[in-house]
């Protein structure tokens, strides 16, 4: 068995308590470990305050880690700093919840897709144009979208652009933060289909963070349920969904309809 692509061990994230004499705050992420094999998808499920977003932001290196380790592709991910980190970030693609907020409102789609390519050091030109058109077509959009702006797109189209941008540098890992929560059900299905196609075609590894257990259960190989900063339950998707060990997991499956 090969080493996992992403390995998180005993991770603790704690936000600073406000005030000089305030007691140290409870950790947002409390000794969480996870392991993501290359080519597989891990669904991280939790409600507000579960620590799922803090975990995601720690993996993205957007918040400082108090203790624990993150290993990405065999490298100590937390030991990389400065310009080296900027370069190393190219191996992670990120898709945020609301595409209209995560795509610069003032830029065209071409300018948005060019950002990661320019950051890698690519030179503008015909090759870059072709690359951007290819990225769009992989995400099911025609090349003439390059001239548009995000606000001219529908929610589903904008989220496709957001995914295309995340894939621009052929990342090893795709991190998704509630990628379908702002979308309608019928559009959500389109985006989930796209993600499943990308996974099948490119062997993409995904970290899929959401509050909606049913959504992520559809495409995740492994599930991890978080509550209050800790992991409540984790395991293979089929096992967690068919025989949840925790009452809380069952509650998260929602009310009403039973499939």
């Amino acid at each position: 068995m090969t080493a996992p692509l992403l390995d998180v061990h005993d991770l603790v994230v704690r936000y600073k308590a406000r005030g000089l004499f305030a007691a140290p705050s409870k950790p947002a992420v409390d000794r969480v470990s996870l392991s993501l094999p290359a080519g597989s998808t891990l669904g991280i499920v939790g409600e507000s305050g579960s620590g799922k977003s803090s975990l995601l932001r720690a993996v993205l290196r957007l918040v400082p880690v108090e203790s624990g380790s993150i290993t990405l592709d065999g490298q100590d991910w937390l030991a990389i700093h400065g310009p080296a980190l900027r370069h190393a970030r190219h191996s992670i693609g990120f898709v945020a919840q609301n595409p209209f907020l995560s795509l610069s409102p003032r830029l065209t789609i071409a300018q948005i897709l060019a950002e990661p390519l320019l950051a890698r050091g690519d030179k503008p030109g015909a090759a870059m144009q072709d690359r951007m058109a290819l990225l769009l077509s992989r995400c099911g959009l025609p090349p003439d979208f390059l001239a548009r702006r995000a606000r001219e797109l529908s929610g589903g189209q904008a989220q496709r652009v957001s995914i295309a941008r995340a894939l621009a540098l052929n990342p090893r890992l795709l991190v998704l933060d509630e990628p379908t929560s702002a979308l309608d059900v019928s559009v959500q299905a389109q985006i989930l289909n796209l993600l499943m196609d990308l996974k099948a075609d490119f062997g993409l590894s995904m970290l899929f963070v959401t509050h909606n257990l049913k959504v992520v259960a559809h495409l995740a190989d492994q599930l991890m349920v978080m509550r209050g900063g800790s992991v409540v339950e984790s395991g293979a998707t089929a096992r967690v969904m068919s025989a949840p060990q925790q009452v809380y997991t069952r509650e998260l499956m929602g009310f009403g309809r039973r499939a």
């Binding site: 499943m196 049913k214 559809h218």
Partner: peptide
């Protein structure tokens, strides 16, 4: 019918959903 079929638990795990 299409709306119901587009729900993520309407198709078997990992299968394409019936998007509209």
């Amino acid at each position: 019918a299409a709306l119901l079929a587009a729900l993520p638990d309407a198709a078997p795990h990992g299968q394409r959903l019936a998007a509209i």
